[in-house]
Structures are given as structure tokens and as C-alpha cells.
Design a protein around this nucleic acid. Structure first.
Lengths: 331, 331
DNA sequence: CATAGGCCCGAGAGCGCTCTCACGCAAAGC
DNA sequence: GCTTTGCGTGAGAGCGCTCTCGGGCCTATG
């Protein structure tokens, strides 16, 4: 508590201008002469003035902050604590927020009450919110009420969003496996109601069809446990499987464990290809070949969009999903 | 934009009381009769009143929010995006914040300018800040200026903090390895200037000494890469190593990969025991036996402390570090 | 019956800022 | 010469809330 904190009035007084003038230069608003700007800026530097965000937010009706919404399902924090995805979103947003000096508020909202909860958040009038993993329904409803929303996952066409080529990525993964000579390519999919998982599933189906292979898959939960269980199931059903496309690295790490546990080798007997390129890919043993989802870049772009102003309805920004080769596929 | 948002004046008017009275019941402050409380509460429910946080913060000089500080080193987001630790901190805080309806603001501050940056943050007068990974020096300096700080990592005695038994955990890990019959127990340590790493290193040294073994160790960076490299180095220097104590799961995952890469088996030839019990432990193959650091619990407790008011100087809360057995150690 | 002491209550003064608005003054147009 | 345009400016009215303070009532006490 250094004690005194200068207000804009102090600045104005010291600079010999009105409060309004000082406010204009502090906010880089038009309507201030160069002379005034210089004077005020000097005083700001000297006094170490820092605007009070609360007052600013109250007066302007808008807070220089961006909300991140993580939907929690069941247990109170959902995947927030365990899934690498969220930290990547945060890490991607942080630098752009920093340089715009805006703040980041994190919210975990329950799945059922998501829309209502988020509306409460919206009432606070920040620069907008990044929906890390909202369902299309929630995202759409939310966007209708309060513009200033951008989704990180596939949504209704109207909602501004960052769009990764999930389908193409899955397709490319299967193609890569095929290129490596694999012909019995099974899939471990994500939750049936997860938009990303749906697209990846589609990509797998298409690729398998095009290549004249037969589709065989099991559903997972986007977690290691689910991947492990699904792989075990698959291996039992179809012992001749020689490759697996897994819709998320966490599950893929589990799948690799399962393959190993049945006495098979990765990648010699079974090649495994993951999705995301998260920390899990690199921790798995052997490290996973995977389809890189550029989460950080997407999050940064989403944040920039919000910072710039109201994203237009249907705004879309597309991101490629690229193959990262490591040891879980044989070359 | 549903349009109208009721203010406390609307509530007061509708309830037939003064604004002050309404404020008192909304804030559960003393000095309001049961009758008034009932009336106001009814109106609040009916109108769906929600206090404007900015106005509240401006008027009271305190914002219902808790800051989380992650120190970024070098690259702009430091370990935020890649290390499971941070999401665990956030996940631990979220529920307690939610139920106290306070908000969570995340800040990534550069290592060099950490203290200054954080002071700016402190100027905003929130309920306090949780230092996820500040160095003792920064933490101490910060605490001196603005109370309302709690550290998640070991610090100077004055700074309120959550204290996990890092030393004991490391000691227990080595003891476990010894119990399993291992006698050439190497260590992969964390960064030499990291408080947690220092304690874990100490625990290892003591245990090795007590057990009459010889200490052999290499330094890592708390990341997978460092763990991999260190393990390789160790294995080359001392090929007869039969166990490794690794100061963090991420590094341990790398170590397991390295052990495997040299043609050795985990746990048959080399047992590996990690630290943290993070997602990395479970993604490694084989899954890691590890010392569980109760990060979520610690973060929750830190948050509660801040919510309750000024933590006294030197406030300490101790947490055990417990063995979690998985497959990377032989039983 | 008078006084003291609680307990509720409402008026009102800010908190630090933004933003509208009207005004002064210069240059430009008739 | 006088009106128009325009820019730079400052006064002042809030934004929605908290919190102090004095006052009214109602009960306990002497």
C-alpha cells in the first residue's frame, strides 16, 4: 500500500487541462491537440497514473476484459483441470490481451445451466467472450442475446467462430496411415455430441470409404481412460487391426498403453495417430504422431477479433490441421 | 441485449425501501429487519437483479475477484500453455470462487518485470492474488507492498503460503524405490532456482544418505525434453542405474521414453517414480508411479484464505504429498 | 415519567471515470 | 464586413453502487 494513487483529476490539474481533456489523451480519443497530448502524457508518466478500471467500466458501460467460458460437465470443473486444451486456449489469449492491456476472466459454468450462467456473465459487459467448448445450441442462444461472442469449436453458422479443419485433419490422418501401408485402420472417436468429435468422425468415415477400407470404431470420452478402454475393446473385436486413428491425444495416449498392454508394439504392430498435438502427444511412449490443432493461434485470433469490436454474424476464420510426425507411426 | 437491467434503485423502489436498505440485504450486511430482508429478496428474485460489479468495486474500493499470477519466462506465456500445473491451480480455484461468487482473473507476467507488473495488478484492489509460481524474492516484495497475497510455492517465511511436503515426498519416493529393492537410484532434478525443485532435491539427498546409497543426479527443466535428455545422460554415465526419482511427471514421462529408447524396460530394468500426479503421469507409458502434489486442494485453500480476508503474515497451510502407485515401479 | 440505549432506516455524499454539449477561437467562404 | 465551418476545450451530469451519519421508533431502565 504505497498509499496515494493519482486520479485523472490529479493528472488534469497537474497538466493544467480539464479532466475531459486528460481523459481524451489517456484513451487516445480524437479531439485533443498535440500540445495537450504531450503535456498530459508527461504528467501521466511522472505520476505513474493508471486509470481505475472499475470507474472506467462503470462510466463507459464496458469493461476491458475478455471472458473465457469453459463448460463443466458433471464434476465441478469438468475437463478444465485435466484436459490440456484449456491451458492452450489461455496461453494463446494471454499475450494478445496483455498487449491490448485487457484482462482475462475465467468462468467455469455448469453444462445444464450454461446459457443462463453465461448470460449473467454477459451482463457485466466485457469486450466479449471466448467459448472454449460450448455446444452449438448454447453458443447460438448466447450469440442471439449478446453479440460479442466467438466460439472455438464448430457452431451454428451465425455464431462467429474459429474453424479448424477437423474433418480434413481426420481425413489426412487416415490417408497417412494408408500411405504407410496400413489397411485395417480403426478409429477411436470422441463423444457423439461433441462438435469437434463429429467432424473428425466424418473425416475418418470419408477417408475410409474413399480408400476402400472398412470402418471400425469405438467411442471414447476425450480422456485417457476412454481411449484405453476403447482400444482394448477394438483390439478384442478386431485383433488384426494394424492402425488406429484416435480423435484426441489424451485418448491416443491411453490407446498406446492398451496396445502395449496386449503385447503388441507401437508402431510396428499397430500405428497410432492422435489429434491435437497437446502435451499428451509428447508424453506418450512412444511419442505420438498427431494432427496439430493450432489452438493457441485460434485463441489468439479469437481474442483479437473481440478486441477489434463486434465480430460480424457468421464471421469465420479457418485454420489448417497439420500432420506432426513422431514415433507412433512407422515410416 | 434484453435491454433493461434493474439497478439497486429499482429494487429499492419496488420493495418500498431506501437504496441503503436494499444494499444492506443484497450484501447480507447487518442492520436490516427480517421484514425488509424478505421484501427486498422477493423483489430481487422477481426482477432478476444482479449487482453491477464495476459500480460495486468503485464504491467499495474492492473488487470481488481473485488474481492468479503465472510468471512467464522467456517466451511470452512461459509454462502456462504446456505445464499441467496451471490448469490444476485454476481448476482448484474455480469451484470455491464460484460459490463465493467472485471472479478469477488470470495474469501472465514477465519474469524480469514481475514485481512491477504485479504491483499494477494489485492497484486494482481485488480480494487478493494467488502466486502460482513466483520466486521467493518477488513474492516477498509483493507481500510487503500489498498484503492479500498467497503463494502456492515455498517462499520467505513472512508470505502466506500453501506448503506441500516436497521434501518429505521426495524422501518417500526414494524410500519406496529402496523398499522395492532398488539400490542405484538416480535423480532428475528441477531447475536449480525453483523452490519446489530445491526441496525435492533436498529430500532425495537426505534419503539417499540415510539409506547409505550414493547420490547421482542430473538437472532438468521441469519439462519433458529436459527429462528425456537428463535420463539419457544419466544412463550413459551410470549404465547400472536401476531406478530414477524424477522431480516432475512431465520430466518423468521424458525419462521413461529415454529409458525405453536405450533398450531398457520400465519398470523391470529401471523403475521410475515421478512427482505431481499430473495428467502426464497417466499419459506416460507405462503410467507413472508418482508422488501426488494436491494442487487443486492447495489452490482451493489459497482461494478460501483470500476470500476470508487478510491472511496473517506467515500463515501456512500444510499438505501431504502421497505415493500413488502405477506401473512404472515394480512391486 | 424521563432518559438512555438499541435497532432500523433513509438521505446524501462520494468512488473515478466517460461523454455530451455548448462555447470560444481560428481559418475559410460569401 | 459578417456568417459559416471546424477544432479544441471545459463544465457538468451521470454510471450504480457503498457507507456514514443523523434521526425516528421502541423497549429497557432509573
Amino acid at each position: 500500500m504505497t498509499g496515494f494513487r493519482p486520479t485523472i483529476d490529479d493528472v488534469a490539474r497537474a497538466a493544467g487541462v480539464s479532466r475531459a481533456a486528460a481523459s481524451r489523451v489517456v484513451n487516445n480519443a480524437p479531439g485533443a491537440s498535440e500540445l495537450t497530448r504531450a503535456r498530459v502524457r508527461a504528467v501521466v508518466a511522472e505520476l505513474g497514473y493508471q486509470p481505475n478500471e472499475s470507474a472506467r467500466a462503470l462510466a463507459s458501460g464496458r469493461r476491458r476484459a475478455v471472458d473465457v467460458i469453459a463448460v463443466t460437465s458433471g464434476n465441478r470443473t469438468g475437463r478444465l483441470g485435466t484436459h490440456p486444451y484449456f491451458s492452450r486456449v489461455l496461453a494463446g489469449m494471454m499475450p494478445v490481451l496483455e498487449s491490448a492491456d485487457a484482462q482475462l476472466r475465467l468462468h467455469a459454468v455448469g453444462r445444464e445451466a450454461a446459457a443462463d450462467a453465461v448470460e449473467e456473465i454477459a451482463a457485466d459487459a466485457t469486450l466479449g467472450m471466448v467459448l472454449a467448448d460450448a455446444t452449438p445450441a448454447v453458443a447460438a442462444r448466447l450469440y442471439r442475446r449478446c453479440r460479442r461472442v466467438v466460439s472455438m469449436v464448430p457452431t451454428a453458422a451465425s455464431v462467429p467462430g474459429m474453424e479448424a479443419d477437423n474433418t480434413g485433419g481426420a481425413h489426412a490422418a487416415v490417408a497417412e496411415l494408408h500411405r504407410l501401408g496400413r489397411r485395417r485402420i480403426a478409429a477411436i472417436h470422441g463423444p457423439a455430441d461433441n462438435p469437434c468429435a463429429i467432424d473428425r468422425r466424418l473425416g475418418y468415415r470419408r477417408a475410409v470409404e474413399e480408400l476402400g477400407l472398412t470402418a471400425v470404431g469405438a467411442d471414447g470420452d476425450f480422456h485417457r481412460e476412454g481411449g484405453y478402454a476403447a482400444a482394448l475393446l477394438l483390439l478384442e473385436q478386431e485383433p488384426a487391426i494394424d492402425a488406429m486413428f484416435v480423435a484426441c491425444d489424451l485418448m491416443a495416449a491411453g490407446a498406446v498403453q492398451a496396445v502395449t498392454a496386449t503385447g503388441r508394439r507401437v508402431p510396428e504392430d499397430v500405428s497410432v495417430i492422435g489429434f491435437d498435438d497437446s502435451i499428451a502427444a509428447v508424453c506418450a511412449n512412444p511419442p505420438l504422431t498427431t494432427m496439430r490443432l493450432p489452438v493457441e493461434e485460434m485463441a489468439a485470433a479469437a481474442t483479437r477479433l473481440l478486441l477489434e469490436g463486434n465480430p460480424g454474424p457468421g464471421h469465420r476464420q479457418r485454420f489448417p490441421v497439420e500432420l506432426v510426425t513422431r514415433q507412433s507411426t512407422q515410416n
